[in-house]
Design a protein around this nucleic acid. Structure first.
Lengths: 118, 118
DNA sequence: GGGACATATGAACAGATCCTCATACGACAG
DNA sequence: CTGTCGTATGAGGATCTGTTCATATGTCCC
């Protein structure tokens, strides 16, 4: 595979974050890449909610919500608090919170979405 | 499906961005959720590169890079400039640039990744 | 204790994803 | 014009995702 601008390539490779960091970052974005998970997180921006209310707010089944929350919890993005038979989930990752804020602060200008002709 | 805190649910539903906005935002995050695509975008943070150099930098095959760039271009996150037989791609979405900056600015503190025991 | 309730979990399946391989296409050199 | 180079594209396939359905677990009320 030919390289056109070897100096530039060296330069970019130096600035490139290490493998782990790239993969971890991609993992975080992956958690935010599902509309339902995104709604769950947005719902929790203002404080904790129980699973059934999260399901109600997002329109998910309670089972689907539970699965999604399990995933988020496994990645330490949310934490669960138990109160009797209820479980209350809250957003526990300031980094993710900032990404959410930034993402929704700019949605109106940036219709950088929707595939189209080549 | 029972609702515990009806007032809170109403509140959250009001603050919830509309369907389109949520889906579009999830789409943007989805583009950032693949390590190779992420590397491509990081590489383009400092300016345009041709496909072969992007492939070299990311360790992708040129075909895979081309496919990925096609996807990014379809979502208007990057733009292509043709120069002879070469195609130079550049990051064209300020919103995505900000997300990338924010994401990689905080990776050291936030190891909020890696699944683990419940 | 018995039963309803809130949540968690596992299996299984449909759809999406991202790669490779083969091939097509346009540009340049000879 | 022919051959090669850089890129683009399509098909195909292995893997991953997110859901539903069924069931398990623990809590509260009677």
């Amino acid at each position: 595979m030919p390289v056109v601008d070897a100096a530039r390539v060296r330069d970019v490779l130096e600035r490139m974050p290490p493998e782990d960091e790239v993969v971890d970052t991609a993992d975080v974005f992956d958690l935010l890449s599902d509309p339902n998970r995104l709604r769950l997180l947005v719902a929790m921006l203002d404080g904790e909610l129980c699973v059934c209310d999260l399901a109600a707010v997002t329109g998910m089944s309670e089972s689907a919500a539970s699965h999604a929350l399990r995933l988020l919890r496994a990645h330490r993005v949310v934490t669960a608090r138990r109160a009797g038979r209820r479980a209350f989930y809250r957003l526990a990752d300031g980094h993710v919170r900032m990404l959410l804020d930034l993402a929704f602060a700019h949605t109106q200008h940036t219709d950088a979405v929707h595939p189209e002709r080549t």
